[in-house]
Design a protein around this nucleic acid. Sequence first.
DNA 1: AAGTATCCCAACCGCGAGAGC
DNA 2: GGCTCTCGCGGTTGGGATACT
Length: 212
Amino acid sequence: MGRKPCCSKEGLNRGAWTAMEDDILVSYIAKHGEGKWGALPKRAGLKRCGKSCRLRWLNYLRPGIKRGNISGDEEELILRLHTLLGNRWSLIAGRLPGRTDNEIKNYWNSTLSKRGFLISPWRGGGHDDGNAAAGAVPNLPMPIGYELGGAGGGGEAGAVDLEALLGQLEAEEDDDGDHHHHHHQQQQQEEEVPSSLGDEDDDYLELAPWLL
DNA sequence: AAGTATCCCAACCGCGAGAGC
DNA sequence: GGCTCTCGCGGTTGGGATACT
């Protein structure tokens, strides 16, 4: 895959966004819609790379964004979903109306991880090296006996079918809103954060019963 | 009151996947 | 079928704000 030229281009602004840049971006998207991030900066007259514009929009400017004050319910949900999904912040964010993956990631790294909730062993550490804390998982709320079926050759009875679980989640993402998860959160934005996982979520909780 | 340490959040970077040519 | 480009994700960093000494 061709390495993308990216933002390190001469003459582009970097660092914090100004109010004027925000205005330009918001009004451009209001007029033309999201997408075409690569072409957006030039068309909108912004001296930013497309990636930077996208990030600013998704994490800050998009309507419906909630900022700060993560409630106890939300925190609990984050913990459960992280146990289930590992560091799949975008999926977790998809379950938290108005929250962004970046915010959840920050919240996790700055708050929860300090309380001893480290990275889940399976997807945790992401790809490759899986350096970060792949080993130590002191407070993982998964009881012994719920071993991961895959890889190591554990499997056996009682093992969670993680792949099925993930497939299910991802399928939901798809039909929830033909676009990606960020979009459906506005309509299901009846304000309230689910105090626990909603009905549809029970499906995958069946596959991860220790969360109940 | 001043200096230093720590925390938190916005933004950047690098990579992989998928779409289009 | 292979190559290039765009998009999206997760990890990391920088800097401002706040707390502590």
